[in-house]
Design a protein around this nucleic acid. Sequence first.
DNA 1: TGTCTGATTCGACAGACGTCGAGACAGTGT
DNA 2: ACACTGTCTCGACGTCTGTCGAATCAGACA
Lengths: 127, 127
Amino acid sequence: MSKQAVVDALCCPPLSERRVPAETAAALAPALKALGDPVRLQLMSMIASAEGGEICVCDLTPAFDLTGPTISHHLRTLREAGLVDADRRGTWVYYRARPTVLHQLAALLTVVPTGTDATPAARSECS
Amino acid sequence: MSKQAVVDALCCPPLSERRVPAETAAALAPALKALGDPVRLQLMSMIASAEGGEICVCDLTPAFDLTGPTISHHLRTLREAGLVDADRRGTWVYYRARPTVLHQLAALLTVVPTGTDATPAARSECS
DNA sequence: TGTCTGATTCGACAGACGTCGAGACAGTGT
DNA sequence: ACACTGTCTCGACGTCTGTCGAATCAGACA
């Protein structure tokens, strides 16, 4: 995952503070795109809000009116966007959120009060 | 724009605090999808960070290696997602950011420290 | 080993998306 | 009225996406 490495290396000036450079846009857009589907947004939320920090695919699949392969496809998309991580434990596969990219997106979308001045309060911590 | 009304009416429990309901996901996903393209992410940033709060299409178009119609198409997508507003003033058309949806997205993507507890500091103001 | 269950991959299909060129529309200025 | 400039709409194109059923892979357990 070389793209993942790029995402990890970038950091988070709010979108409304200065123009986001092409490379940052290219690196972060795939994560936004991955969350830009209602099913994946719910999946992401279920994973991120899961008790114990992880959730089994077997709990994810029945929550939607979709087939197993389709859910699997959406989970793969989230995985490739660097938003979640999976690991198999015995028969079941568990998914866990990766907060790093989520942090970056939240910081990017933070709106500073007025157009041009830099407000430090708007900056969330970033690796 | 009935979808826009829905977006405006919704509000912002962080994605990682509790599972986002299907209706919220359906309402917010289009905005994330709209930002999930590198060109549109840069356009959004240029608009949101513009001096005076607005920017002319004639300043947007030459910043990309794309034709006018293509930029126009992307701007329409942002407009339909409720992220920007346009108005024509004489020959030129100016675009302005709508912070409401951006606020909601930032709040949604905010990651609360540990899986289950609600942290009030993570909540940004929301109309 | 064989079989069963859970999850992923593969192949296919309809629909959506990003891009372009050509044409239409809106305002300005002659 | 006419021409010019800036922006948008339309139609077309190849590509990507979401979905499914069928097949495959990974472990568990007889």
